[in-house]
Nucleic acid binder design. Structure first.
Lengths: 114, 114
DNA sequence: TGATAGCATTTACATATATCGATATTTCTA
DNA sequence: TAGAAATATCGATATATGTAAATGCTATCA
């Protein structure tokens, strides 16, 4: 399960780094931010994120169609986004419902100094 | 030379896409945004960008030291960032001076809906 | 309890990329 | 024009990653 706990969310660690435009990033800050950016550096994941973010919650089974990807591939991408702290999965019965994590998006924008 | 003209800057094409959180991204929008994100998905490039963004302008020769990378590697990364529209290179004499492109950072933040 | 549905994991493979040595190109200077 | 300096490009290699088939796991239902 990609049921990432809040303590695992890398976006939290990233939220503390100062904006890019104010001071050079440390090695550790850069590695952490790069990990989150890498989660966003794939067209399928961006579309997946936008599908989740545009609705209150989305089931995994509602993603395979629009994304035109296999079930294992969709599962892989949701896991990557969840580990980056961008979405959160909640299992209810046989379905996993996904929610966007708005704070993570704000943290990225802040890290970019924009 | 990575002297990218304004017409080549992918951030321009990206600036027109609606925020992630409002509507699902189209395939083309996702590909374009992913290309810019990929440029930010590397620790060395993030530190390079922060070095450039934290100063009015930075010479390539001032990057090898802080980044602890070889000259070809630094040249490669500046090219990637320039092609993504995040920085602009201006050649004056034997030196290339790099500037951040603030509009590109704002466009990313807007695309993320944050 | 057996069968089915939804999702996660493993495994394998093709592609992409970060890195650097060697070399080419451009520009300044003597 | 020759030589040096700064940067860009090429070639090679190791690593990372997107993708899906095969398989495992858990919850629901007859």
């Amino acid at each position: 399960m990609p049921q990432t706990k809040a303590s695992d969310v890398t976006a939290d660690a990233m939220a503390c780094c100062a904006p890019l435009t104010e001071a050079p990033l440390s090695e550790a800050e850069a590695v952490e931010l790069a990990r989150v950016m890498a989660a966003l550096a794939d067209p399928v994941r961006l579309r997946l994120l936008s599908l989740v973010a545009s609705a209150p919650e989305v089931c995994s089974c509602e993603l395979e169609g629009p994304l035109a990807k296999s079930q294992p591939t969709v599962s892989h991408h949701t896991k990557v986004l969840a580990e980056a702290g961008l979405i959160t999965g909640e299992r209810r019965g046989r379905w996993t419902w996904w929610h966007v994590n708005p704070e993570a998006l704000v943290a990225i924008a802040r890290a970019l100094g924009a």
